[in-house]
Amino acid sequence: MEVLLDVKNLTTRFYTDEGVVHAVNGISYAMEAGETLGVVGESGCGKTVHALSIMRLIPSPPGKIDAGEVIFDDGRDLLKLSSGDMRLVRGAEIAMVFQDPMTSLNPVFTVGTQIVEALKIHFGMTDNEARERAGELLAMVGIPAAMQRLDDYPHQFSGGMRQRAMIAMALSCDPKLLIADEPTTALDVTIQAQIVDLVRRLQAQLGMAVMWITHDLGVVAELAKKINVMYAGYIIERGDVRSIYKRTRHPYTIGLLGSLPRLDEVPGTKLVSIPGLPPDLIDLPQGCPFYARCTYRKDQCLEEMPPLEPTDDEGHIVACWRWEHVAGRDA
């Protein structure tokens, strides 16, 4: 398959008054065209900052992309594009859907106006053409009576409908990559199921690649083909969905899966919690960032951050000095 996005050694830091926040610490991975990648991790693990870095939307100052390359599509390095060229990429080639559909739509413009805006800028459509197309897009994401609803304001839409409108807007320019940052976190579970189903259907129809950023290991299991697990600004485990869930290798991923109750669990199951808290990104330890919470740690882990090494499964890599000793969830 053809590589769509190749991230190499991406490093993003925030230079604040309290110190330097090491948000993303040299991560590398590649995404194929049409692939669905799940990026999983807890708050502050750098999953959103890494996506914003790809889009060059990091507020600067205090943020700064200190190193790395983001090779997109036909070999352009997004980090080296002029800001004018980057604007043509954003929205048209890479689109983003944000977590909170309440705050990412402008409350004083109608939903239609906001969708039409991108169409006019990127395609130079006339008002009527753009309006026609906006109606089609809203209908495509499953909003009933789409043409009439174009004249509604965001507050007249429910949470699920707003997220659908955001997806319609993101798809308006037929992007090659859709980055969805916790798109269902603010939604109820029945609405979440609708959105997941919608994205899966649209992806099959339009053939775009999707990067789905979430803290919910359940949702990505249904959607993604590959998973990146992030912790303290590093990718600590990466592999195919089945391999990540069935032959988990990193102690942190094992802990995450263990602390998640399953709907189908047998009575009396105890949750395995991970002790302690994630490290302070201003003051990262020298060795493995998970050392303080890890049950498999050895002195070696204190000295150096482990590199991503291949495991027994093809395409499954893990950053742990002791992964061979970790009692994985072989199932």
Binding site: A193, D216, G218, A221, E222, V241, Y245, K246
Partner: peptide
């Protein structure tokens, strides 16, 4: 049935 179960 809408609740995701983390198991492929």
């Amino acid at each position: 049935s809408a609740v995701p179960i983390p198991d492929p």
